[in-house]
Write a protein that binds this DNA or RNA. Sequence first.
DNA 1: AATGAATGAGGTTTCATTCAT
DNA 2: GATGAATGAAACCTCATTCAT
Lengths: 204, 204, 204, 204
Amino acid sequence: MPKVSEQYKEEKRNAILESALRCFGQKGYQATIIDDIVADSKISKGAIYNYFASKEEIYLQLLQKRSDEFFTDAEQRFTDLPNAMSKVRFLFERFRKQVLTEQNKQATRVYIEFWLYSSRQEDLRNVMEQRYEQFISYIKSIIEEGQKTGEFKQDLDSTQMSQIFWAMRDGSGLHYSFLGDQKKYEQTWKVLEELFVQYISERP
Amino acid sequence: MPKVSEQYKEEKRNAILESALRCFGQKGYQATIIDDIVADSKISKGAIYNYFASKEEIYLQLLQKRSDEFFTDAEQRFTDLPNAMSKVRFLFERFRKQVLTEQNKQATRVYIEFWLYSSRQEDLRNVMEQRYEQFISYIKSIIEEGQKTGEFKQDLDSTQMSQIFWAMRDGSGLHYSFLGDQKKYEQTWKVLEELFVQYISERP
Amino acid sequence: MPKVSEQYKEEKRNAILESALRCFGQKGYQATIIDDIVADSKISKGAIYNYFASKEEIYLQLLQKRSDEFFTDAEQRFTDLPNAMSKVRFLFERFRKQVLTEQNKQATRVYIEFWLYSSRQEDLRNVMEQRYEQFISYIKSIIEEGQKTGEFKQDLDSTQMSQIFWAMRDGSGLHYSFLGDQKKYEQTWKVLEELFVQYISERP
Amino acid sequence: MPKVSEQYKEEKRNAILESALRCFGQKGYQATIIDDIVADSKISKGAIYNYFASKEEIYLQLLQKRSDEFFTDAEQRFTDLPNAMSKVRFLFERFRKQVLTEQNKQATRVYIEFWLYSSRQEDLRNVMEQRYEQFISYIKSIIEEGQKTGEFKQDLDSTQMSQIFWAMRDGSGLHYSFLGDQKKYEQTWKVLEELFVQYISERP
DNA sequence: AATGAATGAGGTTTCATTCAT
DNA sequence: GATGAATGAAACCTCATTCAT
């Protein structure tokens, strides 16, 4: 079988990561055993270790992939939006419209678990810090754009507002990954949006 | 063997729980091994199992205790406050003024970890749901009080606002348990307070 | 059962080391699995790891113990010997009279295997070098004693002669741990003794 | 697929064996994994298994080859030597002049490791015994030649002297594969030669 | 009540060998 | 003939819990 295409390997990697996401989401990173991933993916233990050096590496790459996907996706969707406010609105809409599928709830849990996990592993703090920085600067630049155009208040601390956005997202993500009530989830995001937008908007 | 006093036992239980908090905070629930608690508490493994049936029970009781303490403390502090707004302001102040000691950061991590943990253990969902309910209704009643007195908008969904409060608290708690910058932490809470208060306040 | 005596623990340690010697001797260090030692010693895997941190540590301590025993034993036996030549003679006799029991052959194999093993593990070279140095200086001092008293040639390099002694011992040990012919073993040592003694003796 | 020439196959076999020698020498037989040989030889895993049935077979053939080479080489060099003593002298010289390259030290280790390995594998004892027999009779015949010509003592046990020669060689080989001091190595062989020659020589 | 040694199922990772391409 | 991905049986080591003292 050997000498397989790059694509074949890419697909296999992805299959493993998808299984891992399911498993980590369902049971948590630590509680997931390699055999869970084997069972879910139907890929042998040895094969998994051909693609990833360790369980932890699977975890890291999984999160990297999710994060990459977020930014790729976000960039694409923003191309047509005319101003900062519409971008902020769009962002809230994006999270609000997220469907609380098992998969999404799991992904959120995995992501939040990683916050905790990386807080505790000295060698991962860096990874997490950088990722956090990326997410922060993403919103930050929108805020600043809005400040330039006069859409948003001039005296906002853009970094801080960005932090607040992600804190709200992570907090409600955490809760709804547990509660799972779609309707309330959407209503909550509606309110969060108003709260946030009201605060950042330049008043007439 | 001579029976020891109830108080002695209570102290021992507390010592174990305190050690457990430190350990769970530092390494996480799963990564903490009983011997960590033994080492930290200087109480023998056997003794620990005399007081708690399992590692999980230590975890549960630890969270119960923290939660009880929160409410006991909160109740006491509220006795003198004249109205709903001052209670809300006080609540924000309480979190804002929290010092980001290692201990507090750890406690936050342990608490958030428990959200994830209990999401995944069928038999714990109940425990978590009840606890969540308690926290929700705590703020909810303040909101409703404010609505009655006309301090707050009439058309707020009090449950929802309570959820949002806790989502903000858990989101920023998560982030700052990692980031640990006291000054920024306080500033963030200042903004959160404004954001929240602005939104709930009845406008003249 | 806890709070056992130091002696109890010492015995347990020894029991593990003795089993390990049997197992390492029979199958080699690498080929021996912990379960072999479990089976041989009837001590559970966990208990073994209570006494030793790793398979390698068992190996190291086993060799340390053998080496210590050699020197303790040798010292005691030498107290009465009047001169260097009788010490040399005695030493040869000691090895010559060694019975080629399975145990002794195994011990030799384990010891020689450790030469190879430590050659390859950077962190063990030191351990081995020190041990080698000990063995070398042991014979070396006897040679030098004999040179002082005029029993041995003045122009011998005492370190070198010591090396040669141990090379002969290890070479024939290796071979006879395989061949196992007791009679020939003794005859060989007789010849080695003559060879060696003849060479170091001051000729009249 | 087109049949390749016998020579091509022979070269490939040799390339594998040479890599194996390096790897086994560096890490030991058991610690060497097939991928080490793949990496060193740049021959694929599958191809290696086309030439050898197992890792153990590589080991066996490697030693067979070394042993064959020794005898081929030795025979050639002996053709011109006039008498037994010069052959003995030549033999000592041969080992004395061996350069302690990494390669040679590794080869020694591999060889000695095989003594241990074969002691433990019932099915290999035979292989080892025969090889040992070969080496023994090689020296033995020189000794006997010398006894016939009166160069050596009549009452020597030629087999025993041969064993002693190889024991000295293996013992010092083991030590110097670890120590690696070229100058001392040569001096030791000088002394071994004197020791040995003095003992076997007919005294006038 | 307290101790801490013992247990052994269970976790992660390795690696000789196979075999589809 | 060559390739190297796949397999899965081990191997080492951990650790929650028990229980004899």
